[in-house]
């Protein structure tokens, strides 16, 4: 905990020196929430209401808000363990996992703040109604973050070897926006494309998070939740294995600190 505290202190001090950026990020969240809320209040997407029994505004606000967790997780390992600091990390007697956890906490706290802004705008200005299943929300968020940290480790591992160009992050970002059930349900797409959604964990994350935030019990979301658990159970260890292998290969080749 002592180490984690100093990671947090480092990141908060560092972040607080960029005051303009901090203000812009808050404004961006507020105006982003307003834009999607106006869109939701005035657009029609019948299938959304049928599937989730929620308003389009609620659908969009939850999607865009919780996507910040996934975006944060997806680039987490690359940001933490980069060539600039990798050697310093590896020669210290602190393990990689502590580095990754310690370096990510402030980002997640900031993301949580952003989510609160999105939800607050939705609730206060557009009548979004939430009935939060706290245990379910925490579980789904943990599974989503775990899965995306797995992807992040795969991307970071590839980046350690290729130095530039990480196809995993690009592919996952594309998959999230097209098949991830963030801004529209896959059911609005042709059936051939819909099928792809069922193979990406984002679909199950956004489906279940909307349900647990609008009052569904864990039992009622069990089928989708089980798939998300299985995906996380495969992707997270796989990411760790790939990252470790790439790191070991770069150490063997002596290319760790190359850019």
């Amino acid at each position: 905990m002592d180490k984690i505290y100093y990671f947090m202190k480092r990141d908060i001090i560092s972040f607080s020196t960029y005051k303009t950026n901090m203000l812009l990020m808050v404004l961006s969240a507020v105006f982003g929430a307003l834009s999607y809320a106006f869109l939701g209040a005035n657009a029609q997407m019948q299938s959304v209401l049928e599937m989730y029994n929620i308003s389009l505004t609620t659908y969009l606000i939850i999607g865009i808000a919780f996507n910040t967790y996934l975006s944060q997780s997806l680039t987490l390992v690359q940001k933490t363990i980069n060539p600039w600091s990798l050697e310093e990390v590896l020669v210290s007697p602190t393990g990689l996992v502590t580095f990754i956890v310690g370096s990510s906490l402030w980002g997640f706290i900031w993301s949580t703040g952003t989510i609160v802004i999105y939800l607050a705008v939705g609730i206060l200005a557009f009548g979004v109604v939430l009935s939060i299943n706290i245990v379910g929300t925490l579980l789904v968020v943990a599974l989503g973050i775990g899965t995306f940290i797995g992807f992040s480790m795969i991307g970071a591992g590839i980046l350690i070897l290729t130095k530039q160009g990480d196809p995993v992050t690009t592919l996952i970002t594309i998959a999230t926006s097209l098949f991830g059930n963030v801004l529209f349900p896959p059911q609005v797409m042709p059936i051939q494309l819909q099928v792809i959604s069922y193979f990406v964990p984002q679909y199950y994350f956004f489906t279940t998070i909307r349900q647990v935030l609008t009052g569904s019990s864990l039992l009622s979301i069990l089928p989708d939740l089980t798939i998300l658990i299985l995906m996380c159970a495969v992707i997270l260890p796989l990411g760790y294995y790939i990252y470790s292998w790439c790191l070991q290969t770069a150490r063997k080749n002596g290319t760790l600190s190359w850019f």
Binding site: Y5, K9, F99
Partner: peptide
């Protein structure tokens, strides 16, 4: 100082 404070923690 803050830089060293961080490294002091990770160097135990």
């Amino acid at each position: 100082y803050s830089n060293l404070e961080f490294y002091a923690a990770i160097y135990n």
